[in-house]
């Protein structure tokens, strides 16, 4: 059960001549719930996209279940940042979720009955099935986010990657949202990129802090190194006494 599902070794990545990530080593165990945090522009999203195979590393390697990410795409669920998606796109909720059932290779038949069943079950799991005929743009930010998770769940994944999933969800909706993830985490591994460590810290099991290098801690708190490196220390320390500790007690 404790086998590692994601393994990153000596990973380096540059974009337009700028080094974004350097010498990253990371191992994520089965059914971990990991937060990826760090300052804006530090490479959180880049690290996530490297893990799922959207970017190819310049140096080093990424292995998921011991394979290249593209080889195990059928086991990966991905919830992207919403900003890149056209809200006015003419598409129904059920068609968005069906995208999770796309497979490489082609047949004229399109989606099978099983695909439709899997999509419907994912929608039911997120309690969004009553909206399935609605146009995606008519939903609220929080509802749309649930649809995107349903789409990722329709894949029937073993790992779920989420990139800033609560950006368009109000703070009340966020708590409910993380409760859902916590429940999903009973069965699958979850990696979530967020700039908001405070909300996350009572749900996660480990944290990785990205700032060119990656600092990993297998508990829901930051080490002093991480706090320094992530240059977000002030906020964490000032909030870090109750209700839960995010920074280790000073020796």
């Amino acid at each position: 059960m404790d086998s590692s599902v994601i393994e990153i070794k000596n990973l380096g990545f540059s974009y337009n001549g700028h080094t974004i990530l350097e010498n990253v080593n990371l191992e994520i165990k089965n059914r971990e719930f990991m937060a990826v945090i760090g300052p804006n522009g530090a490479g959180k999203t880049t690290l996530l996209k490297l893990m799922i195979g959207l970017f190819v590393p310049d140096r080093g390697k990424v292995r998921i279940f011991g394979e290249k990410p593209s080889k195990v795409a059928h086991r990966i669920g991905y919830v992207p940042q919403e900003i890149g998606i056209n809200k006015k796109f003419p598409i129904s909720v059920s068609d968005v979720v069906l995208m999770g059932r796309l497979k490489p290779g082609k047949s004229l038949a399109g989606y099978s009955a099983y695909d439709r069943k899997a999509a419907r079950e994912a929608l039911e799991q997120m309690e969004m099935h009553k909206y399935e005929k609605r146009r995606i743009g008519e939903l609220s930010g929080g509802q749309r986010q649930r649809v995107f998770i349903a789409r990722a769940l329709a894949v029937q994944p073993d790992i779920l990657f989420l990139d800033e999933p609560t950006a368009s969800v109000d703070s009340k909706g966020q708590t409910g949202f993380y409760e859902i993830l916590k429940k999903l985490n009973e069965k699958i591994t979850i990696v979530v990129v967020s700039h908001d460590f405070m909300v996350l810290s009572s749900y996660i099991k480990s944290v990785a802090c990205v700032s060119k290098n990656v600092y990993y801690h297998d508990a829901a708190e930051l080490t002093e190194d991480m706090a320094d490196m992530c240059s977000c220390s002030a906020e964490f320390i000032s909030h870090g006494i109750v209700p839960h500790r995010v920074l280790r007690k000073h020796g």
Binding site: Y78, F89, G105
Partner: peptide, 22 residues
Amino acid sequence: FFYNDFLAMSYDEEFARIRGVH
């Protein structure tokens, strides 16, 4: 023939890529 793939590419290209759409 490519309807589902065109739809996925048009709506969310990255997701389409991960799902193996060329």
